[in-house]
């Protein structure tokens, strides 16, 4: 997915530049709304309607349905915003990160110096 990596040349990395931000604006706007508890309830009550309301396109909706955080990143989702979606769905930072690395959470934790410091 390497339009971004062509621009920046950093492997395994999606630098959140204006082009990626524009691509992911609907995702990030939706995720930002989830900082409010009443919106988290609305989201959980009807995910599809909530995504449509914020104008996510089909690819973005599919990535959300699959909880595919890497794909969401490639489509312009920014982690700082989609952590609020993660919080709504009960997906924390480390499981999200392990998934982006293509690892189980358990294997990811083995790569850490002090896995108790969470």
């Amino acid at each position: 997915m390497s339009d971004n990596q062509d621009r920046w040349g950093i492997p395994g990395t999606y630098v959140f530049d204006l082009r990626l931000s524009r691509r992911g604006y609907a995702i990030n706007k939706m995720c930002h709304s989830l900082r409010l508890a009443e919106n988290r309830d609305l989201y959980l009550a009807d995910e599809e309607a909530y995504m449509t309301r914020f104008g996510l396109d089909d690819e973005q909706k599919q990535a959300v349905r699959e909880r595919d955080w890497l794909r969401l990143t490639q489509l312009g989702g920014n982690l700082f915003f989609f952590l609020k979606l993660g919080a709504t769905l009960g997906h924390g930072l480390y499981p999200i990160g392990a998934q982006m690395r293509g690892e189980s959470l358990e294997d990811f934790m083995k790569t850490r110096n002090v896995p108790g410091a969470t």
């Binding site: 950093i10 492997p11 395994g12 990395t13 999606y14 959140f16 890497l70 990143t73 920014n78 982690l79 930072l93 990160g97 392990a98 982006m100 690395r101 293509g102 990811f108 790569t111 850490r112």
Partner: peptide, 9 residues
Amino acid sequence: HQLNGERFG
């Protein structure tokens, strides 16, 4: 630190 992409962590 890196929190995005395959290079997370």
